[in-house]
């Protein structure tokens, strides 16, 4: 932990530069393992210790990725997948917020709905797929429904928790000022419950991405999950791996994007007080 920064400061560099160097050294250290693994992987592939059908060389995965990109297949399939996630996320978070806020505000609503809600959330999303298929078929509505279900649960639970944790005093103040329900929600509840809400939305989004891949693997003629299945059917594991990389990067971007948004919103909240 200490050896690198110490040696840097021994050179008596200006602190800003030293900070950069520390960050750089950390970055390099973090790259060591992946680079080493990559080299080992290339070596294994070149020496054919594992047959290339099971472990295609990293260069081939990269080629496959570039080809996906340049042929436009990546953009079109990713676009379809992202649209599905968007709709599913919108529907699921709207339903989740409504449910969560209602249950959070009113103990009566909670008493009536929470047990049912918990029962619904007990069955993992994959368990719902057959039922949904029987009801809506395998069209777009299936994908949206599955994603929405995956999003709704964490959003609702976190919304409820967030509201539950709003200090009672806040409500009393609102009552004192004779705020309407809507105004109470908007001016008092939402700002106070925001961190928990944001947390729920983030969890929801990451669930949405997972559910998308799950449902596209099952029955689809397009989308990023379908690309994987296709790569596998055609015995092109490099395509499968390239798609995994894409799924990982998109997952990261979605997560980081929402985190940025969250930070932005929270600073807004802080300045609002």
């Amino acid at each position: 932990m200490t050896s690198i920064p110490r040696s840097v400061s021994a050179l008596r560099l200006p602190p800003v530069l030293a900070g950069y160097l520390t960050a750089l050294s950390r970055g390099l250290l973090a790259l060591l393992l992946p680079l080493g693994l990559l080299l080992l992987w290339q070596l294994i592939a070149e020496q054919q210790w594992i047959s290339p059908q099971l472990l295609p060389p990293p260069t081939q995965v990269l080629d496959s990725l570039l080809e996906l990109y340049s042929s436009g297949e990546l953009a079109s399939n990713l676009g379809i997948s992202l649209a599905r996630v968007l709709w599913g996320f919108a529907a699921g978070s709207a339903a989740g917020l409504l449910l969560g806020v209602a249950m959070g505000l009113s103990p009566r609503v909670e008493a009536y709905l929470l047990p049912t809600f918990k029962a619904i959330s007990l069955v993992p999303v994959i368990g719902w797929v057959p039922l949904f298929i029987l009801f809506v078929g395998i069209e777009e509505s299936l994908k949206v429904l599955v994603i929405a279900k995956a999003v709704m649960v964490p959003v609702a639970i976190n919304a409820m928790k967030g509201i539950r944790n709003v200090p009672v005093g806040f409500f009393e103040v609102a009552r004192l000022y004779r705020f309407s329900l809507w105004r109470t929600v908007r001016k008092v509840v939402l700002p106070a419950a925001l961190p928990s809400l944001a947390n729920g939305l983030r969890l929801g989004l990451s669930n949405a991405w997972m559910a998308l891949v799950a449902v596209e693997l099952l029955a689809s003629s397009e989308g990023i999950g379908y690309l994987m299945v296709y790569g596998r059917q055609l015995f092109q594991l490099d395509l499968v791996m390239a798609t995994m990389v894409v799924i990982g990067v998109v997952g990261l971007v979605l997560d980081q994007g929402l985190q940025l948004l969250e930070r932005h919103l929270l600073t807004w909240r802080n300045s609002a007080y």
């Binding site: 999950g225 499968v240 798609t243």
Partner: peptide
Amino acid sequence: AVKQVALFAWIPL
């Protein structure tokens, strides 16, 4: 980084 790959995307591999 590896965690970012959605769980079900591991199924084919």
